[in-house]
C-alpha cells in the first residue's frame, strides 16, 4: 500500500518532464524490456505471459515508452509501481545475495577441486616416461592380435 503514493509521484514526475525531451527520444523497446521483467501473478517472464496482470504491465511499459523513457527509467518506474519482484534479475541485498554468491562459490570450489585432481593424478607419473614393459613373447603377441582382430571395433 505504501507504494501507491510513490507510484503517483513517479508517474507525475515522468508526466511533467519537458516535452522537448521527445526530440531526442531514447525509444526503449517493449520486446527488450519484456525479457527483463516478470509477470507478477503468473511468475514467468513477461514476454511469455498472457494474463490480465501481464497486459497491465505491458500497458504501463508502453505508456512509459510513449513518454520517451529509457529502459532503466522504465524499470525503475516498474519497481516503484509493482515492487522489486517485478525485475527478472533479483536484487542482491539480504538473503537474495545468495542467488549470486552460491553458484559463484560452487564453481570456484569445483574449479579448485578439478585443478587439484588433475595435478594429483598427473603427478603420479603421467608426465614422466614410465619404464617400458617387457616385450610380449611371440606367442602372446600373436594371440593378442588375433583376439583383437576377432573383437573388431
Amino acid at each position: 500500500m505504501r507504494r501507491a503514493p510513490a507510484a503517483v509521484l513517479v508517474a507525475l514526475a515522468l508526466g511533467l518532464m519537458p516535452a522537448a525531451a521527445s526530440a531526442a527520444c531514447p525509444r526503449a523497446s517493449l520486446p527488450d524490456i519484456e525479457g527483463q521483467v516478470m509477470c507478477l501473478v503468473c511468475g514467468v517472464p513477461l514476454n511469455l505471459a498472457d494474463s490480465p496482470q501481464a497486459s497491465r504491465e505491458r500497458d504501463f511499459i508502453e505508456r512509459m515508452i510513449d513518454r520517451c523513457r529509457s529502459t532503466s527509467q522504465i524499470k525503475a518506474a516498474l519497481v516503484s509501481q509493482y515492487g522489486p519482484r517485478v525485475l527478472a534479475l533479483p536484487d542482491d541485498s539480504g538473503f537474495n545475495a545468495a542467488v549470486y554468491i552460491v553458484p559463484a562459490l560452487m564453481l570456484l570450489l569445483g574449479a579448485g577441486g578439478a585443478a587439484l585432481a588433475v595435478r594429483w593424478w598427473s603427478s603420479r607419473g603421467g608426465g614422466a616416461p614410465a619404464p617400458a614393459a617387457p616385450a610380449l613373447s611371440p606367442a602372446d603377441a600373436r594371440r593378442l592380435e588375433a583376439e583383437m582382430e576377432r573383437w573388431e571395433r
Binding site: G35, Q36, V37, M38, G43, P45, R85, V86, L87, A88, L89, P90, G94, F95, N96, A98, V99
Partner: peptide, 15 residues
C-alpha cells in the same frame, strides 16, 4: 527464498 524470507524472489532469464 520464500521458505527463508517469506518472499518469493524472481529469477528470470537475465540471471
Amino acid at each position: 527464498s520464500e521458505a527463508v524470507t517469506g518472499n518469493k524472489a524472481s529469477v528470470g532469464p537475465p540471471w
